[in-house]
Design a binder for these strands. Structure first.
Lengths: 188, 188
DNA sequence: ATAAGATACGGAGGACCCCGCCACTTGGCA
DNA sequence: TGCCAAGTGGCGGGGTCCTCCGTATCTTAT
């Protein structure tokens, strides 16, 4: 089990870098063939490192997702629980709306997949990271009853998906998030 | 300009029927080739009747969209403006969540397209139909300031997109709609 | 330093899809 | 009935995804 061959590790890194650019340019449906071409490897090598498209998407976004997770940990013991949650949700929204392909990745990794392993899925990781924030805010009565962290992540994913087309997705998504948090049709 | 030839009209209807089934079965990315095959026509005939995929999606869903629009008209002078809006939004959500491919169609038709004509787009039609409901509810103070009918349609589209994977999309979407309307993280 | 073995590579080939072209058929009108 | 435009279908080109398999390359032990 000597970890991995040196060239394999190089190709992996190369593919990741190219994939990030390519996904940013052409969305989550970017051509794997094209990624292989740009990276200067055979198309089989792509699927060797990333069996399905989802695996590639996960890997590409893993880093930034981690950043958001640690952001959540930092905010976990802020004074104002509600403000902390809101800040985190806004950060998440901004990132989801500005990073092409991410929202699709977030929904896709919830899709039923032959292999059961969802533990590495971006959406799951994010939900778990946000859970403490939601819990604390809920204890302060600042969260709608029945709403979970996963729900909020799902809502934000939806907003990001639905605003992908918009001229200024980030601003639009943030605005819609505001409506969603405050209540678009609040009870009189 | 004698409207259309009889066989053309037949093929059009046939394609629409087949496309509906095929999209229900395989989502908005259903193969046009396959649709042609099942309908027993050449693949060129499909694109003759529906230049882009979006045109086909629009045509397939037009009927039900119309139903929702007339529903909006019926509700336009209900006693309780808020209740009327909520009912319409719930109906829209249920339909969007239960009809595979519709949510995608709703987002796609907002995408920039070579030809400018968006006037027939499903999302636009829906937004316009819902506008009176929103206006009346807003006058009653039941809608968040700044929220438009288009915003609500967008939010619902997002919810439908994000819950497509879920085991029970309709129930999940309805629940999330409830959160969105009432406020997921309401101001203390 | 080198040879052996495991590991990773890349290209070929099949299946599918979208798309544009063009010769041909078919329906409607005189 | 015969003409002609409207409508059709199939073919070929270009692209993608995916799998298989012979081969090149890295690693480790000698």
């Amino acid at each position: 089990m000597p970890a991995q061959r040196a060239d394999a590790r190089r190709n992996h890194a190369r593919l990741l870098a190219v994939a990030e650019e390519e996904i940013a340019a052409h969305g989550a449906d970017a051509s794997l063939e094209q990624i292989a071409r740009v990276a200067g490897v055979g198309s089989a090598t792509v699927r060797r490192h990333f069996p399905h498209r989802r695996a590639l998407l996960d890997a590409v976004f893993r880093g930034r997702i981690e950043t958001l997770c640690s952001r959540a940990r930092d905010l976990a013991d802020a004074d104002d629980a509600r403000a902390a949650l809101v800040e985190w949700l806004r950060a998440l929204t901004e990132y989801a709306a500005s990073t092409r392909g991410l929202a699709v990745a977030l929904t896709r990794d919830l899709e039923a997949l032959p292999d059961a392993g969802h533990e590495n899925a971006c959406a799951t990781v994010l939900s778990e990271a946000g859970e403490p924030l939601v819990r604390r805010a809920a204890e302060a009565g600042a969260v709608a009853p029945g709403a979970t962290a996963a729900d909020l992540v799902t809502l934000i994913t939806g907003i990001a998906l639905a605003t992908e087309h918009h001229p200024d997705p980030v601003a639009e998504a943030d605005r819609l998030l505001g409506l969603t948090m405050a209540g678009a049709v609040p009870r009189g």
